[in-house]
């Protein structure tokens, strides 16, 4: 079984919001209709987004770290939003594990958004239907695009390559290997939703230099170094021979 998902590397994300804007750009131009933007230049701008980048401060000054945290639908393997939907508009695809909303069936009752602990679902205030990240399902299978571009818009936009896309059920895929080897984790594991999207933790790259690495006992330079030659008492070759 395939389960497409994103792996987001928090070690690399710089919080530039490029994934947010490219997501909005791609999806607002999509076949399923625009994504609402009310008062985009006014006092209280509001609208529908599938992806947000948040910022957290970890620790207390002066020993603080800034964490930029992109958040979108996690395409849970056991999605709590799907069984509660009264119309069947919310569903999880068998073939690739993407959780989608059928905008033609949704009645806008908001129950699925109550049932998502991550707040990944946002109702579109104009179309009055629930919307969420589609993992760019209209893009990743589009054969009119070159194969390298058949990825979610956010993945392509990320300037630091913090977003990986692939099948987390294929144990040899790039995303699976990364999750395994770089300590990929899931959000709110306490609810048993088994999010397909994983996050890679912040990883400090430290140099460990031991003292004897600075003062190497077997320093080859020292081995080859010659001390000053001692003065010679006896007759030298020069003394005994005369030309």
């Amino acid at each position: 079984m395939t389960q497409l998902a994103l792996v987001i590397d928090l070690n690399v994300c710089v919080g530039c919001h490029a994934c947010v804007t490219s997501c909005k750009e791609w999806n607002t131009s999509g076949s399923s209709g625009f994504m609402t933007d009310e008062n985009p230049y006014g006092k209280d701008p509001t609208g529908t987004f599938f992806n947000r980048v948040q910022t957290y401060e970890i620790g207390e000054f002066p020993s603080t770290e800034t964490l930029h945290f992109p958040k979108s639908c996690l395409h849970c393997e056991d999605p709590p939003c799907v069984p509660v939907c009264p119309t069947g508009a919310s569903y999880k695809r068998e073939e690739d594990g993407i959780v989608l909303v059928d905008y033609d069936k949704c009645i806008g009752c908001r129950y699925c958004s109550w049932a998502c602990p991550y707040g990944a679902r946002e109702i579109d205030e104009t179309q009055k239907v629930m919307k969420k990240c589609t993992l760019c399902v209209d893009r990743i299978y589009d054969e009119s695009l070159p194969e390298s571009e058949r990825k979610p818009a956010c993945v392509l936009a990320c300037p630091t390559n913090a977003r990986l896309f692939g099948d987390v059920h294929d144990s040899s895929s790039e995303v699976s290997v990364t999750i395994r080897e770089e300590g990929g984790y899931q959000l709110m594991p306490e609810w048993g939703t088994k999010p397909a999207n994983h996050y890679l933790p912040r990883r400090k790259t430290r140099m460990h230099i031991h003292e004897d690495e600075l003062q190497r006992a077997d320093n080859p330079l020292k081995k080859e170094e010659r001390g000053p030659s001692k003065p010679v008492d006896g007759p030298t070759l020069d003394d005994s021979t005369s030309w």
């Binding site: 008062n39 209280d44 701008p45 529908t48 987004f49 948040q54 910022t55 970890i58 946002e122």
Partner: peptide, 15 residues
């Protein structure tokens, strides 16, 4: 100690 510094938007949303 973790403090949120930004939720990613300023004008409010459904969330």
């Amino acid at each position: 100690t973790i403090k949120q510094k930004a939720m990613g938007f300023m004008g409010g949303s459904v969330n």
